[in-house]
Design a binder for these strands. Sequence first.
DNA 1: ATGCCGTACCGTGTACGA
Length: 260
Amino acid sequence: MRIATWNVNSIRSRIDRVEAFLERHDIDVLAVQETKAMPDQLPTMGLEARGYEVAAVGYDQWNGVALISRVGIEEVLVGFEAMPVFKEQAEARAVSAVCGGVRVMSLYVPNGRKPGDPHYHYKLEWLARLRDAAQRWKDTPTALVGDWNVCPFDEDCFDPAQFRKATHLTPAEREAFFAIEADFRDVARPFTPGPDVYTYWDYYRQRFERNRGLRIDFVLGSPAFAERVTGAFVDTDERDPAQGTGAPSDHAPVVVDLAD
DNA sequence: ATGCCGTACCGTGTACGA
């Protein structure tokens, strides 16, 4: 089974690339983030024609996550237990389901904006509650996948000095990430060792062309998931403006292979 | 230091993203 995660930065403007990606890599389960669409706005026709089912959550033009699976989507859960809200509003940042016997959770961790910002505290609280909620799945085949908006290590950032006063590299964010990573291991990193391995490159300043990016998209697997992983790669070509049709997302997909 | 690009929306500006 082949599982992937990808922040698509609007599934409506990216659907052609999503379908091409699924075909190019023969993907069974794709978790997407930043769909920026409500469920009835999702362009599912081409996905269904290719044998995929979709489970999604989206409340407005922001955030939005979904699962696209051709090995079944059962026991769909929107959000997680005690998921924090922002400005008294629940946000579309988590959806999970059992696909081919594996619980896959598509996650879009809050950005944080700036250290000290209410959004930053929201981010830390969100990760802490996710850690608690995920405990119930740590002894089953489970993958927590998505855009974590955290660089766990300095080598995950093209210029840590530039981020000294920014989010993504602060000790508190890393602690919150590693509290989860203690039970759900990063299964892609051993197959994609750094430095200079990234999953996100900002659109401007030719960041992709100069490979100045961040590694912030991760597949974290429970032990029962991790022991089945046989390989992983970042589909860097998908981020290349020179390849494919239409503009790329600012994130590249992370793909993980699982033994049956 | 800078959101310099891209996306979405009640749009010709604003909000958001790392």
